Each structure stands twice: as structure tokens, then as C-alpha cells.
Simulated assay, not measured.
Amino acid sequence: MGWLGKVVGGAIGMALGGPVGAVAGAVFGHAFDKDGSELNRDERRELSGNEEAQMTFFVAAFSMLAKLSKADGVVSRDEIESIDQFMTQDLHLNRESRNIAIDIFREAVNSPEPFEGFARQFYATFRNQPRLLEVMLDVMLRVSTADGQFSPQEEELILSAVHLFNYPSEGYLKLKSRYVDQSDTYHSVLGCDRGDSDDFVKKQYRKLVNEYHPDKIAAKGLPDEFTHFAEEKFREIQEAWEHVKKERGMA
């Protein structure tokens, strides 16, 4: 995520608008003042299209998680630990990037910008990448249920994202079952139910393997750290497939 260091160092000008731009401006503007390294505007270049998409992903993701964590009135320790796991184990952020993600989270918690604003801007950037939208919903569910509870306020925000992302309701229910109802986790990971045919399960498995392949994720120009997340999802899919295949007696 080399572009992030350039933003912090002042070598890249901020060109984002909307809620994401407001939070990014507050966070990175503070970094410029703190480091005393802001460059003359004429010496700075603007974000490239790829860098802008990466910035939107980074800021919007942690802003949505901030709003979601505060939805029930209390940001719990379990939720914080779940977000930290997302940063370190899924995205493999280094210390600098992790600290900036924390700053974004803190700024967004107290920001007047609503959750829906961040979700709408996230969708506007990634509307043609449905699996990335699905991953974001998955992370939201993971964080909101980390404390063992899933409040109506939390689900209301996630459902608003489901609507804004144009994500199918049946798909959301399958995602939700991974965290709220663990009775059939492996089938849920594959996007199917226990009652589905073997042929359908195989079809779902092949589709997910193709869409979550780390090489395909990397080719979309997302942060390098996100490819690590794709690799984790890829392994999760493979593990689920092995369990379901064994349970069903499939060759």
C-alpha cells in the first residue's frame, strides 16, 4: 500500500469528495500538520484512478465498520478485536497502515456522516465487483456478531448496505447464517443449502473458486493487502468443499 505513505507524506493531493473525502481529509490533514511535511500544492500530484479506488476502499471500509460498531451505543472490546483481526490477519496491514486505519475508525465514529453515505460511495466505486461487495458484507457481519449478539440496530445498517449494494436478499441470509446460525456453516460458505443437489453444490464451488482466486483479485487493482484476504477466503472455500464433499460422499 505504497500510495498510503505518499498521502501521509503529502506527495499526493486529496481529490476525493463525499463522506469518504471528508473523513480522509480530516485524518490525512492532521497527519500533514503533525509531520510538518506538507508540500506546496503545485508539487503534489492527484490520486490516480487506481489509487483513488484503493483510498475509497480503505477509508470507506473502516468508516462503515466504525458506524456499525457504534450502532447499538457501545463499541465493545470484542468488536475492536474483530476489526483488529481484519486488519492484521485478513489485510495483513503493516504498523503504519494499521495506525492510519485506527485513525480513520476513530474519526468516522464521531463523524456526522451517516453509514449509508459511506456505503453508497463504496458501491459507486466497486459496483462492478460483486465479490468485493460480498466480502464487505461478510466482514460487517463478522464484526457485528463478534460480541455474541446481533442487535436490531446493527442489522438495520447492514440491511441498508445490502439494499445499496443491490445484493440479493437470499444471498444475505446465507451470509448471515455463517455467524448467526452455525448449524450448517460449510454449506453456507459455498453459498448453498443442505437440501441442494450435488451438482448444484459442485457448480457453486467452482464458481467461488474462480471468483475468489487471488490472481483475479490482484488483477482488479485493489491493494496488495486485499489479495491476502482473498487467499484466506480461497482457503475457507476449499476447507468447506472438503467437508461437504466428505459428508455427501462425493468423489
Rank of each mutant, 00 (worst) to 15 (best):
E51F: 04
G2F: 05
H243N: 12
G2V: 05
G195Y: 15
E52T: 08
G148H: 07
L175W: 14
E46R: 10
Q182I: 11
N50G: 01
G171K: 14
D72Q: 03
K67G: 02
R41I: 08
E38H: 13
F28G: 10
S69T: 07
M64Q: 05
E38A: 14
D90H: 00
D199M: 13
K207E: 11
A108T: 01
N110Y: 11
A240L: 09
A60I: 04
F122G: 04
E134T: 14
A240H: 11
G117E: 04
R44H: 09
L68P: 01
R178Y: 11
K216D: 14
E51I: 03
C192N: 02
G5W: 03
Y172W: 07
H187S: 13
E116R: 13
F150E: 06
G171S: 13
F150C: 06
A251F: 04
Y172N: 07
V59F: 00
R95G: 00
N210M: 12
I217P: 06
L91K: 03
D78V: 11
D78T: 04
E96P: 00
F150V: 04
G17N: 09
G36M: 11
L91N: 02
K233C: 06
T145N: 06
A230S: 10
A60E: 01
N210Q: 14
E170P: 07
